[in-house]
Design a binder for these strands. Structure first.
Lengths: 262, 262
DNA sequence: GTAATAGTGTCTCTGAGACAGTATCTC
DNA sequence: GAGATACTGTCTCAGAGACACTATTAC
């Protein structure tokens, strides 16, 4: 502990002669799932890939390196509003998407321009809303990278750390909450759901699709996470989008159990 | 979206004429568990209470109101270091305790002194390390409040929101991770563990103590969360601190399963 | 014996997972 | 019939929870 008494931490702001941060940007990890339809003889599920949106920096600092999208927050907006504004500016999305604060990053020197912490956000966006961002356009400003590729890029600032943490957060919440809905249409089949989970969390392996189904639907503990989509006369609705055999459609309810270790 | 082109968000810091934050304090929700031994005829478990440390502000802003401890972070330290420094200054604790970032709060006007976001932290501290903070000393600067009482105080700033979020975080992690260890000695009995969980999460109710025990020890899914404490010759150690009937001592291992809803 | 905690025994019903089988529909 | 997905049947063993019971030890 310091020898001299510290400048009292409850001293009024106006009398402080402290230096204060040079800005408080929000940086956003925008995740999406990229579907690629396979060329099969009959209808089939597309292959999916978890991807993240990066932009190419054009400034002198970290010029030409890829970085997370983001920008400085403003005094007259909340941090969430700032992040959402940046998300919109970067993607042109103009409706509600999943966005949550991850945490704030600062260590001395993380930004060569000065004392600039970063409030990191995580956003999950359905691929339909990012159609205009081409995954393979190398000349563009913004691009979707498969997550493994992104992690091996030499990202600007400490964005590699942020991305790593963000991915861990998404994987955790994918198994513990119903955020899978961010990557799914309102109504989906169990195979689609399973595929999304497996795409985001490769470690999640289900040996038997049928058992997954039973577990989700016939376990009292999980009762009510999903509900079948019914037509007007109470009959379940089916989809034949990805298979010739009609598959029941489900949707998420508002109910999410809290899973626990004890 | 604004009509005029925004000042390019990747414009170099030195050329920006933006206003920047007036400081970036860390505020810490320091939780502990307060034990009070009951006056019973034989040895018994103490009653426990979840409590949070608050300090009485003495500045002009929010003078005399209770608030979360905290203080301005500095340019040459990480946010975690700043929070830990404040924790130490406030409590005189000088060893590792559980501390984690919650999230950062800002909305216009949250601090009358200016543009001052707050990086909130959550810390869990064993009561033995807070012995010098008396829970019932009304004249003191710092005081422990039972959590329900604290939530009904008119706290300074948006500290009530922060505390609410912090409590939710602690409750969630209490069930999903082994943070209970922060409130327990290294070696503890199953009754102590159960009591800590029930104290932090009142909704967690176990009808039958014996079933709790079996679940924790004889379920393959939970195998390895706890391990019995063994003496030199491989015999389990027992405690008679809270009961005449010796109770087996356990400790947490490093293993924590990821609970999931699917 | 009493008080307070620590545990065991046993029973029932749910459920997880393995494996095999059938169904649907298009080409 | 091939191909891809969508289920259903059945068996086994683990496990959650209810309830009742015994054990330990200081007083």
């Amino acid at each position: 502990m310091s020898k001299r008494p510290l400048p009292a931490k409850r001293m009024s702001y106006r009398t402080r002669k402290h230096r204060s941060p040079d800005g408080l940007p929000t940086d956003i990890c925008i995740f999406t799932i990229n579907s690629q339809s396979r060329n099969t003889k009959t209808k089939s599920l597309p292959t999916k890939q978890l991807a993240v949106l990066l932009i190419k920096r054009k400034s002198t600092t970290f010029g030409e390196q890829w970085a997370l999208p983001g920008g400085f927050s403003k005094e007259n907006e909340t941090l969430d509003e700032g992040a959402y504004r940046e998300l919109k500016e970067e993607t042109n999305i103009d409706r509600d998407v999943h966005i949550e604060q991850l945490r704030t990053y600062y260590k001395p020197g993380r930004d060569p321009r000065g004392w600039i912490p970063s409030v990191a956000y995580v956003s999950l966006v359905h691929e339909d809303l990012l159609k205009h961002v081409r995954a393979d356009d190398d000349a563009s400003e913004a691009r979707l990278f498969p997550i493994d590729e992104a992690l091996h890029l030499n990202l600007a600032f400490d964005h590699c750390d942020i991305l790593t943490d963000a991915l861990a957060r998404v994987r955790e919440k994918m198994l513990q909450t119903n955020i899978a809905k961010a990557f799914l249409p309102d109504e989906f089949t169990l195979s689609e759901l399973l595929q999304v989970i497996e795409t985001v969390v490769p470690a999640f392996k289900v040996s038997d699709r049928g058992n997954f189904e039973r577990r989700l639907l016939s376990t009292t503990r999980r009762q009510g996470i999903l509900e079948p989509v019914l037509s007007g006369d109470g009959q379940p609705l089916y989809s034949t989008e990805y298979s010739n055999s009609p598959a029941k459609l489900y949707r998420f309810t508002d109910y999410t159990p809290t899973p626990m270790i004890y």
